Each structure stands twice: as C-alpha cells, then as structure tokens.
Simulated scan of single mutants.
Amino acid sequence: MPWTCADIPDQRGRTALITGANSGLGLETARALAQRGARVVLACRSLERAEQARAELQADACGELIPLELDLADLQSVQRGAHQVADQLGRLDLLINNAGVMAPPRQLSAQGHELQFAVNHLGHFALTQQLLPLLEPEGRVVHVSSGAAYFGRIAFDDLQGERRYDAWAAYAQSKLANLITALELQERLEVTGSSVRSIAAHPGLARTNLQPTSVAARGSRLEALAYRLMDPLFQSAAMGALPQLYAATAADAQPNAFYGPGGPGNLKGYPKACRMAPAARDAATRQRLWRVSEELVGNALGS
C-alpha cells in the first residue's frame, strides 16, 4: 500500500518548524502536520507571509500555528528567529528545511553570498546549528533537496559564482549541498551518541511557485515553453510534500536515505527511498563543505 498523509502518526504534543511554510511544499507540509495535531511554526521570509499561511490553514488545523519571521537570505534574521524559537518554545521535535529559491539571475544575500547558496544551503545550515540543541533527544532534521542534486558539483574555487555564474549549476550545487549536509550531520550526530536523525528528501517534479517565479525572474520564453510541455509530468504540491512528510514522521524513515517519489525516474508518485547522489558520499567533500560553511556563517555572525 502506498504511504499517504493518512499514515502520519498522531502529532499531538509535538512541535515542528517548517521554513517556507507559506506556499507550495512547505504549506502542504504544514497543513498535513497541523491536521494531525502538531504545533507548527510557520517560518517565512516576512511576518505577513506567515500570517497569511496561518489564516489559510487555521480552519483545518488541530494544532497551534505560530507565525515566525525568518529570512534565510539574511543570517542575522536566521539568528533572531532561532533565538525567538528557543526563548518561546524551548524545544522542537521536527525541523523541516524546506524553503528554497530556484535559478534566478545572480543576486546576493544580505551578507554578500550568492542567493541560491545562501538561502538553500547557508541559511538552513545556520538554522540547523542553532536549533539542534532543541531537537534532543529524539528529534529529526529533514533536508529538502532536489533531483538536481544528482547533477550538482561543489565548486569550491568559485562557490559564489563570482567568476562564472550559471543559474542552474548554482541551483544544483545548492541542492547537492543539502544532501551533503544531511549525511555529514548524521555522521556527526552518531559520533556524539545523539539519537537525533538527519534525513534527506526531494519532491520530484511538483507544481509549486518555484517554476513561475524562476521564469518571471529570468524572462526566459524557452523555459516557460519547456514547463508547459512538461506539465503532464508534474504532480501536485501535496503529492510532492509526501517524501518530506515521510522522512519527518514515518517510524521506519532511515538516516542516510534519500526519500522521493517512487514512480519512473523518481519524478512523481508515493514516497520511497531513492538512489543517493554519489557526489554526496565523498567524505572529503562533505567535511570541506562543512568547514567552509561554518566559516562563512561564523564570519557573518561574529562567532
């Protein structure tokens, strides 16, 4: 039998924080968890977006919905949001690093990092480090990656795309970084004896606001045509959210796995464990990216 939202265990008494909870995969993930009784922190780029998400979800939610302003493109905002969660809630059961940007023209974050690397990777890396103590003893961190990770390469000689910027290569790099972080974090948790689980997932091809936003930002008619031709391959955002919900709640979800749709090419369908991107398994790359990320975040936050 396929795994669906009906299989999510009772979430009463549990608290989840979801980044990018105002639309697409994040909104559907918040909806599913709140319907099962979880207290859900709706971490969004602005408080207005978070309040809009709460208003949309309120009618069907069985658990409390808490709006939180947290802009992943600004590490200072990430730090403020993490401190607010620690002060007000004191604990978490689930951290779902869902938010992302996809293939915009080259832009910089508040700290001067390439936007995709900043939002998709560095912001989540910093958030995870700051919230990890709240997830002890048996919480889970879910890293939402993409099938693009299979084509990614960590360009250590040009991480910020300063010499050569390709929007899709930068996106693939950031999504590979999500996978690398998931595996490296799990290894570090095991070394310390922690029972927190670090798990990766991807949505396959899901209809979200990422596609139209990317097309609008780049003004690419060819890209817009490609999406129209590919439309039959896409599944709904609700279906696309199932792998991350599985990673977050299923009793048998395993660390070091990469959950995605189980259909042909892992593009659509119900959740299953997918092949891990080989580049994510390279220990030297994982350790180097971790060190570089710690340095970039530390420099930005003065730590």
Rank of each mutant, 00 (worst) to 15 (best):
R197H: 10
L205A: 14
S303R: 15
A50D: 02
A43G: 11
A238T: 11
P2I: 13
E294G: 12
A253N: 07
E48S: 11
E295I: 00
Y246C: 02
P2Q: 14
E223Y: 14
A50H: 06
L115D: 06
V85K: 04
G204E: 05
E295T: 13
A226M: 14
G26V: 06
S46K: 04
A55Q: 13
H202C: 10
V119Y: 00
L33N: 02
Q84R: 15
I8G: 05
Q235L: 08
G269C: 08
R14T: 09
P203Y: 06
R14L: 10
M239V: 03
G269S: 07
V78W: 04
V292E: 12
T181R: 11
R164M: 10
L115Y: 04
K272D: 12
S236G: 09
M230K: 12
L159K: 03
S146G: 07
A32Q: 05
G193W: 03
I96H: 00
H121C: 10
Y165G: 00
T4D: 11
I180L: 15
K175P: 07
Q254S: 15
P2C: 08
P278K: 01
L242K: 01
L189P: 06
A148T: 10
E28S: 04
A284N: 10
F117M: 14
M102E: 05
I66C: 15
A86W: 03
P261Q: 08
Q244H: 12
P278E: 06
V119R: 00
A300D: 01
A30I: 01
R14F: 04
Q160E: 15
D74S: 14
L222C: 09
L242P: 06
E294A: 12
L131A: 01
A103C: 13
R91L: 11
D157N: 10
G26E: 00
S174T: 03
L17D: 07
A167Q: 14
L222R: 14
L25Q: 01
S146Q: 03
A277V: 07
Q52P: 00
L135G: 01
R197P: 06
R91T: 13
A284K: 12
I96E: 02
Y246G: 02
Q244A: 08
G193H: 01
R288N: 02
V78S: 06
Q111M: 01
R275S: 14
N256Y: 14
A253L: 02
R228T: 11
L127R: 00
R207Y: 09
A21H: 04
I8H: 03
V119L: 01
A6S: 12
E114D: 09
Y227F: 15
V297E: 09
T249S: 12
L242A: 05
G63Y: 02
R221T: 13
A59W: 08
A59N: 13
S194Y: 07
D166G: 15
N98R: 04
A118F: 02
G24R: 05
G13W: 08
C274N: 13
D87W: 12
S77R: 03
S195E: 10
C274G: 01
P104I: 02
P232I: 05
A61I: 08
A247F: 04
N299M: 12
A169M: 11
L47G: 12
Y150N: 12
A99L: 08
P271K: 05
L210Y: 04
L242H: 07
R163S: 14
P232W: 02
I18N: 00
E69S: 15
A38Q: 01
G20H: 07
M230E: 10
V101A: 08
L122C: 03
V119P: 01
